[in-house]
Amino acid sequence: MPELPSPVSAVDGRDGLDLSADVVELTRQLCDIPSESGAESRIADAVEAAVDALGHLRVLRFGNTVVARTELGRATRVAIAGHLDTVPINDNLPTRFVTVTEEDAAADVPGTRPGEYLWGRGTVDMKAGVATQLRVAASLAAPRHDVTWIWYDNEEVEASRNGLGLLSQVRPDLLHADFAILGEPTNGGVEGGCNGTLRADVRTHGRRAHSARAWAGVNAIHLAAPILERLADYEPATKRVDGLDYREGLNATRISGGVAGNVIPDLCTVHVNYRFAPSMSLDEACAFLESFFDGFDVEIVDRSPGARPGLDAGIARAFADAVGGEVRAKFGWTDVARFSALGVPAVNYGPGDPQKAHADDERVALDEIRSVERGLRAYLEDEA
């Protein structure tokens, strides 16, 4: 993939953001501020300073979460949110422009298109989405709906640290809206709702002994074989919810056990992730997992509910019609679930291929960034 010439940034200062810049250049500015989960203060400072200078937004700061609101007295309010953090950098910053050829695309993940891309950590997940939001927030002072823009921290880590979740606890009123949009990568299409997710530790217990006298112990790792057999035999269901098809998944993601090379292990833990359709409640999902691993020690260690698509709401359907394209199901979990729990219908809409999220060659198509900016603007512009 040959590199394209890199434009010179129009921004003065270490972390200044130029919200009047082309949305692709703004994406690059955002990505080039390192912001791994737990280290978002620099980028939050930059975003806060940029939107605070606009004048038409009321800006509030909660930790490293920035909220900017229009207060025009519109009959409806839309919440539009995006997270500022990324997974760890792995020699993929600073960003650069690359060209994906027909040959490159054929050798890459299914669905890759040839064209011009911005390469680097955060380009897909989800600085391009944040850039489109910031551009529209800056340039559209009088949208047809009042808008609450929310840019938050710690989305890529455990739910207890999630900035949007913490905001919902201290200021739930700021999440109240008639409709919500999350800028998660969707290839520039609309993805409704999301699957729920559970993580569990499934344990077996044995008895330690010297490995030269294995008969004196009970090998906990060997006892875990039926756990893996059940997982290997599991056939994931596809469930239709409000007209969209959600594919479920149940997988071991980590296994640990043993204390030394010559000791029969007395404990083995299989870490399992269950992705379930939003028609199932958290209690139902937990009950399924405990039944599936009946006979084993099961501890649910993290849980997040799914979100129904909410496309039966007129305001949500109007958004899908405004941006065009087919509405699909979101297989992964996203923070649309936090809005759904408050009774707010929510969808995912952002540039970038989700298959490239967190990848070392993470990259976003330039035309998708511009397309999503146009889509948001078309939805929010006053028709008068």
Rank of each mutant, 00 (worst) to 15 (best):
A141R: 14
T132M: 00
G55N: 12
N64P: 02
L72E: 07
P88H: 13
F62L: 12
E48I: 02
L60D: 14
V59W: 09
M126S: 08
P110S: 07
F62V: 08
L72R: 14
A137W: 01
D85A: 05
T101A: 10
G82P: 13
E103V: 14
V59N: 07
G63R: 11
G120R: 07
R61A: 09
A141D: 13
A68G: 11
L93F: 02
P110A: 07
L134G: 00
E71S: 14
V100K: 05
A141T: 15
E71W: 08
G55F: 11
L134C: 07
V124I: 07
A105I: 08
T76G: 11
A81S: 15
A141H: 13
D125Q: 08
L140G: 08
A137F: 02
V66C: 06
A128F: 07
G73V: 09
E48P: 07
G122S: 06
H83R: 07
T70G: 06
H56R: 12
L57P: 04
E103R: 13
P94Y: 13
E103S: 14
R135C: 06
A137R: 03
P110K: 05
P88V: 09
L93V: 10
R58M: 11
V78K: 04
V66Y: 03
V130M: 12
A106T: 06
E103C: 04
V136T: 12
E116G: 03
L118E: 02
V67G: 02
A79N: 10
G73H: 06
R74C: 08
G129N: 04
T99L: 10
A141Y: 09
I89E: 14
F97R: 15
V51W: 00
G122Y: 01
V109M: 12
A50L: 06
V47R: 01
M126W: 03
R77S: 01
T101K: 04
D108F: 10
A75F: 06
G129W: 03
T132F: 01
A106N: 04
A138Q: 09
R74S: 12
D125M: 06
A142N: 14
G55Y: 13
F62K: 00
L84G: 03
V87T: 15
A131V: 12
D91N: 14
L72I: 10
T99I: 09
A53T: 08
R77W: 05
R135I: 01
T123L: 01
T101H: 07
T132L: 05
T123K: 03
S139V: 01
P88C: 09
I89K: 09
V109Y: 12
E48T: 11
G111Y: 01
T70V: 07
G120S: 09
G115I: 03
A128Y: 00
A128P: 08
N90V: 14
L93N: 01
V136E: 06
P94M: 11
V51P: 04
F97C: 00
G120A: 10
E102G: 10
V78I: 15
R69V: 02
R113V: 09
V124P: 00
T65M: 02
I89H: 12
L60P: 00
Q133D: 11
T132G: 00
L57T: 04
A75K: 13
V136W: 02
T70C: 10
E102S: 13
D91H: 15
V66T: 02
V130C: 13
A105H: 08
R58Y: 07
V66E: 11
A137L: 10
G129A: 11
V109D: 03
